[in-house]
Simulated scan of single mutants.
Amino acid sequence: MSPGGQAEARQGGSLVLTPASARLSGDWTLRALGPQLPGLRRQLRMASADAAWSLEAVERLDSFGATLLWQAWGRRWPTQLSLRPAHRQTLERVARSAERPLPQRSVFTPIDAVVALGSALIAFLAHVRDFVVLLGQIFLDLLHVLRHPRDWPWLEISANVHKVGVKAMPVTALVGFLIGVVLSYLSSLQLKVFGADVFIVNILGLGIIRELGPVLVSVLVAGRSGSAMTAQLGVMRVTEEIDALAAMGVSCSLRLVLPKVIALGLVMPLLVLWTSTIALLGGWVSAWVELDLSLRYFVDALPDAVPVANVYIGLSKGAVFGVLIALVACHFGLRVKPNTESLSANTTASVVTAITAVILVDALFAIATKSIGIPG
């Protein structure tokens, strides 16, 4: 028989029973016993724990095979047992594990609530600390490239501008157009009742340019580009590419984080302007269908209904939201541990945190600019 054939013959475990003895041979491992497990279980049930058990011919024994034997012996050592020292250690380890009782589920107490709250607070403070460290590193990188203009990562910035800006234009335009149609349709239904059809321009202009446009684009970018940034950095962490860059003396923040922050900060105001324009177009289409409002009147009335300060507020929101989304995405991407579970968890946390942060900052903008750009 060839060596390969001998290996194949040795793979499966076997059990030879006599009235007074039980002789085991072969490999007693999960992989080897899988195909013949039902037959071996029947043989083990027929064997007696008081018989003379011989395991000296067993080539390999893992925890699965040891557990199978331990259960067949009734969770006690046979009276007569001969085996190799290495196999005895495996059986002793299984025996100790079987003697250890399973932990009982404890009742949730107020102390547990305090512990859970404290753990959440400590985790939050760790996130805040790492985020502040990231901000400081970005500031230092900006100072460095301002002092050394030849070190600007122009190639990385342009690549990110294309990915997060140009490629996002179709989806933002589609969603913006549909949101404009829906908002205009619902508003026109109410305005018809009071005969205030002309005020549709005011509702669409202020709602889309000042609030809905920047927030809508931010949510889309956080879900599309923010998750992609986190996943990219996370995969580089899993594949140890970031460690390789550090070993070569390449700044991770300068080459990976700073281009994303700059690109998203530049692109977001343009995306807000693009999406708001398409949304207003969709709103006019719905108003034209429902209220017979002409495009000429819509365009002429829009500057009077919406002061130009609202455009500046919307664009400034876009820039701030873009920088915030990029920072949050990079923060969670750099926190990924070298395993796929951490990658998925941090990507999800990145999107949720970015959207939540955008809504909170938008509320602060609304409070800070409550008296700016509102027609008297």
Rank of each mutant, 00 (worst) to 15 (best):
Q6V: 06
E8K: 10
Q11L: 10
G12P: 08
G13N: 03
L24I: 06
R31M: 08
P38N: 07
R41Q: 15
R42K: 13
A51N: 08
L55C: 10
A57C: 09
E59I: 08
E59K: 03
L61H: 04
G65R: 02
T67H: 05
A72K: 01
A72S: 12
W77H: 06
L81D: 03
S82L: 06
P85K: 09
H87M: 09
R88D: 04
Q89I: 08
A95M: 05
A95P: 10
R96E: 15
E99G: 15
P101N: 09
Q104C: 13
S106D: 11
V107A: 14
P110F: 03
I111E: 10
V114L: 15
V115K: 07
L117G: 06
G118S: 12
A120L: 13
L121P: 00
L125C: 12
A126M: 06
D130M: 10
F131T: 09
I138S: 01
V145F: 09
L146I: 11
L146R: 08
D151Q: 14
W154M: 14
I157M: 13
I157Q: 02
A159F: 07
A159E: 10
H162D: 11
V164Q: 03
A168F: 01
A168Y: 00
A173I: 00
V175W: 02
F177W: 05
I179A: 02
G180T: 09
S187M: 07
S188T: 12
L189K: 13
G195K: 06
D197R: 12
V201N: 02
I203T: 06
G205V: 04
G205Y: 01
L206I: 15
G207D: 02
R210F: 06
E211C: 07
E211L: 11
V219Y: 01
L220S: 03
L220D: 01
L220M: 14
V221Q: 03
G223V: 08
G223E: 07
R224Q: 11
R224W: 10
S225C: 11
S227I: 04
A228M: 05
T230C: 15
A231S: 15
Q232S: 15
E240D: 14
E240S: 14
I242F: 05
I242V: 14
D243A: 11
L245H: 01
L245S: 02
L245W: 00
L245N: 02
A246S: 14
L256T: 02
A263T: 08
L266P: 00
L266G: 02
V272Q: 02
T275R: 01
T275M: 08
T277K: 04
G283M: 05
W288Q: 13
L291C: 03
D292E: 14
L293G: 00
S294L: 10
R296F: 13
D300E: 15
P303H: 11
V306I: 14
P307R: 06
I313A: 00
S316V: 08
K317P: 01
A319Q: 00
A319T: 05
I325D: 03
A326L: 08
C330A: 13
C330G: 05
H331D: 07
P338V: 04
E341A: 12
E341N: 13
S344N: 15
T347K: 02
T347P: 07
T347Q: 04
V351Q: 05
V351I: 15
V352A: 12
T356N: 10
V358D: 00
I359F: 13
L360K: 01
L360S: 03
D362T: 08
D362F: 07
A366T: 13
K370C: 09
P375I: 15
